[in-house]
Structure formats: structure tokens, C-alpha cells
């Protein structure tokens, strides 16, 4: 077990009313396993993912990563963990528009303070781009890539620094059915080969076949673990 979500709660104050988005969620992520969070809109799955990824604080509960409690860390400590140990894939690729595919990945190595020399970094970039089948577009800018290609580059960026946990929020939502399957196959493959603990939020029932664990959420609570 590498990642534990322990009784996490999240509530927002909306005027006089306090809305409870998460009502004490418990979850464990393991290396080499892909866990899918499913549920209707407003069920709290995206909120849970962003809290787990250190992108917003929990109102209560603990996020334990490698024995350390993220919720008790300061912003800089959480940023370091995000940069070094976590990878992110979002609904949109969110690539830096003025960097080439190769530079997007080099930037991530830079952010994660990679000890590799520049020549080794470039070799690593080539390797990962080959893995996501984007090595032929390494000098292309995002504006010249298709939606599927962009998402592949985003996945490559998320794993180039060998994160221990990969968070993916609806990574196939902006793609058609074929490209969605390709992306999920890739994420699933990388989870196994790179031994990453992956947490993925999805609406798409078709994509659940790629998951090792399926967590169904409703009204801020876990309904079912499969």
C-alpha cells in the first residue's frame, strides 16, 4: 500500500448553509493497480481526486502517502511531493502552448529536479515518447497535434519523472470512443509496466474494463467497491 485516503471529508460554506461534498471517504491505492472512481455528476469523485492529489485541502481526515500525512504538510512540502512523486492527466491535455512535445517533457524533468544530465534527459524523453507512440512528433507544437495526440503527450508528461502515483481526471472526456480506448490502454499499460498507483475519475462505463478496482461514489460517499 502506497497511498491511503483516511476518512476524508470536505464541506463548503454557501452563505448560511454548509454543503458536505465528501462525507468521510476511505480508499487505498496500490502500486501497479488502476483504481477507477465512478459516479454521477456531483457525487464528489473529482473533489476526492483533487484532495488526494494535494490540489485542495480536505476539511477533515488524512491523506497518507508513503507513511507521511499530506494534510499536515505546508504548501511547499505538498508542491514538492506533487512535482516529484505525483503525475497528472486532466480532462484536457493542458500542454504549454509555446513548448514542443520534447520540451513539455523536459520541463517536467526540470520541475521534478531530475538528476539526469541533459543528454540523458533527452534519451529518457525519447524512450517515453516511444512508449506513448509520439516519438515521431517530438518537435511539434501542441497547436499542430490532434486531441488524442495531445492527451498522449500529457500522459507522457505525467509519467516522465517516474511518479509513484498517477492522478487522471476524466482523461478521455474530450476524446472519441476509439481514442478513449487507446488512451485507457496506454494508462493501464503504464500503470503495470512502471508500477504506478493510478487513480482515475471517469464517467465512461466502457473504460471501467481497464480498472483493477472500481469505486462507485454517490452523494459524497463510497457506495460500492468492486
Amino acid at each position: 500500500m502506497i497511498f491511503k485516503i483516511d476518512n476524508v471529508k470536505k464541506s463548503y460554506k454557501n452563505g448560511e448553509v454548509t454543503e458536505e461534498i465528501l462525507k468521510g471517504v476511505n480508499l487505498i491505492l496500490r502500486e501497479g493497480e488502476l483504481t477507477s472512481l465512478v459516479g454521477a455528476s456531483g457525487s464528489g469523485k473529482s473533489t476526492l481526486l483533487t484532495i488526494a492529489a494535494g490540489l485542495q485541502p480536505a476539511s477533515d481526515g488524512q491523506i497518507i502517502f508513503e507513511g507521511k500525512n499530506l494534510t499536515s504538510m505546508n504548501a511547499e512540502q505538498v508542491r514538492k511531493i506533487r512535482a516529484h512523486q505525483f503525475g497528472f492527466v486532466f480532462q484536457f491535455a493542458h500542454l504549454v502552448p509555446f513548448l514542443t512535445v520534447e520540451e513539455q517533457l523536459l520541463l517536467m524533468l526540470d520541475v521534478s529536479e531530475s538528476k539526469l544530465k541533459i543528454r540523458e534527459q533527452k534519451k529518457e524523453v525519447d524512450k517515453i515518447l516511444k512508449l506513448v507512440e509520439m516519438d515521431h512528433r517530438k518537435h511539434a507544437y501542441p497547436s499542430s497535434l490532434s486531441g488524442g495526440e495531445k492527451q498522449r503527450v500529457a500522459i507522457a508528461r505525467a509519467i516522465i519523472h517516474r511518479p509513484k502515483v498517477l492522478f487522471a481526471d476524466e482523461p478521455t472526456a474530450s476524446l472519441d470512443s476509439k481514442r478513449s480506448k487507446d488512451v485507457m490502454t496506454l494508462i493501464s499499460h503504464l500503470t503495470k509496466t512502471l508500477n504506478i498507483a493510478t487513480l482515475i475519475v471517469t464517467h465512461d462505463e466502457e473504460m471501467l474494463s481497464f480498472a483493477d478496482h472500481i469505486i462507485k461514489m454517490s452523494d459524497g460517499q463510497i457506495l460500492q467497491k468492486v
Binding site: 508542491r79 514538492k80 506533487r82 497528472f88 493542458h94 504549454v96 502552448p97 517536467m108 520541475v111
Partner: peptide
């Protein structure tokens, strides 16, 4: 703003 947010999310100081 959006780009800065994403860069912050992936860990850029």
C-alpha cells in the same frame, strides 16, 4: 492564468 494554474498543479514553483 490557466497556464500558470496547470504549471502550479504539476509542481512549478
Amino acid at each position: 492564468i490557466g497556464l500558470y494554474g496547470i504549471l502550479k498543479a504539476i509542481g512549478v514553483k
